[in-house]
Structures are given as structure tokens and as C-alpha cells.
């Protein structure tokens, strides 16, 4: 089909009418743009800037994650440790004095806190997952051992696949709830 032989309508050649058309189109496109661009930004997750060596505390001493993230096996939030939690150990005679000095210097950073990346309408309970036998590393990976913590990507897809029993088959988890209101509110 070729339409090139068709003449353009005379109204597009200029004049007042043309400006009226432009005005209407601009108004409409502004409304449209408002509507389309109001979307919330996609969550971004960068590396954490907290100067803390997970490798020293975890593997070499044998501390469980829940020793500092006290909620990791008990409550919905895993929690970040407070200064007092650190000082439980660091006030005692220890092998590594340097760490203690470093802690005293860098007080402004503590107690450490960071932003939650869980949307408001999602329920995630760390305790119930730990209780079901899910290891921290199953979701958080082992990256934090090399201090590359904070780079995990969580989405509903990975949640629901495990809940349906499609992933982690070798771990033999019990089947989990898949109805919407189990995790959404």
C-alpha cells in the first residue's frame, strides 16, 4: 500500500488553526507525561559503606550471624547491632587491640543503621525462615565473607519459587504458604 500520493490536508500549513492544534497537543502530552512519569523509581541497592569485617568475626571466631544481628533468628527484622552489642565483646581483654581503637575513633558511624529495602506491603520474618532451617547464606549468599555485603538482589520471583518448592529441593524444606496474604498486606 502506498499513500505517498495523498496530499497533506491544508490545515497543517500554518496559521492560527495550526497553533491551536499545537496547544491542544501540548496540553494533552503534559497530562500524559505527568501520568506516565509519576512512577516510583526502581529500587537501587548499592554496597554498604560500613567499615566492618565480616570475615574476621564470622568464620575465624565462629560467631553466628544472630550474635550481632540479634533478630536474625528470632524476629521479623534481623536488626543492626548497637554500640553496646559491639562492646559486649570489645570491652574484654582481647587479642586484637586495633579493632577496639578503631571503634573508639569512628563513633560517628555507630550505632549503625541502614535503610530498609523491603517495601511496606511485603512481610518478611527472618525468624520464621531461620526456624524452618533456611540458612542465612541461602538468601544473602556468601559475599559478605569477602566483605562484599549489601549487593544481594531480592525479588518476589526468588521468594515464590522457593515457597513453591522449585528451588532448594536438596534442602528438603517443608512446603510453604503461597497465598497472597501470607506475605502481603
Amino acid at each position: 500500500m502506498r499513500f505517498s500520493g495523498i496530499k497533506m490536508p491544508g490545515l497543517l500549513k500554518g496559521g492560527l488553526f495550526c497553533w491551536v492544534v499545537v496547544l491542544f497537543v501540548v496540553v494533552f502530552s503534559m497530562f500524559l507525561a505527568d501520568f506516565l512519569l509519576e512512577e516510583p523509581a526502581v529500587p537501587e541497592r548499592g554496597m554498604s559503606s560500613i567499615p566492618f569485617d565480616h570475615a574476621i568475626h564470622g568464620d575465624s571466631i565462629g560467631l553466628d550471624c544472630s550474635a550481632c544481628h540479634t533478630g536474625a533468628r528470632a524476629s521479623a527484622n534481623a536488626y543492626m547491632p548497637s554500640m553496646a552489642d559491639c562492646m559486649d565483646c570489645h570491652r574484654l581483654p582481647m587479642n586484637d587491640k586495633l579493632a577496639e581503637e578503631e571503634m573508639q575513633v569512628d563513633l560517628s558511624e555507630k550505632p549503625w543503621s541502614h535503610k530498609r529495602h523491603l517495601p511496606d506491603h511485603v512481610v518478611f520474618h527472618h525468624g520464621v525462615h531461620a526456624a524452618a532451617g533456611v540458612a542465612c547464606a541461602d538468601c544473602h549468599g556468601t559475599g559478605f565473607r569477602q566483605n562484599r555485603y549489601g549487593g544481594e538482589k531480592f525479588d518476589m520471583q526468588s521468594c515464590i519459587r522457593c515457597h513453591r518448592g522449585e528451588t532448594f529441593k536438596e534442602r528438603g524444606f517443608k512446603p510453604a504458604a503461597t497465598y497472597c496474604a501470607a506475605c502481603h498486606r
Binding site: T70, N77, Y79, M80, P81, S113, K115, L118, D120
Partner: peptide, 10 residues
């Protein structure tokens, strides 16, 4: 959108 609320000490 993430909640943006801060998670801190227990």
C-alpha cells in the same frame, strides 16, 4: 518502591 524506613538496633 522500598519503604525507606531505617532499620537500626533492636
Amino acid at each position: 518502591e522500598t519503604s525507606g524506613a531505617s532499620v537500626d538496633v533492636a
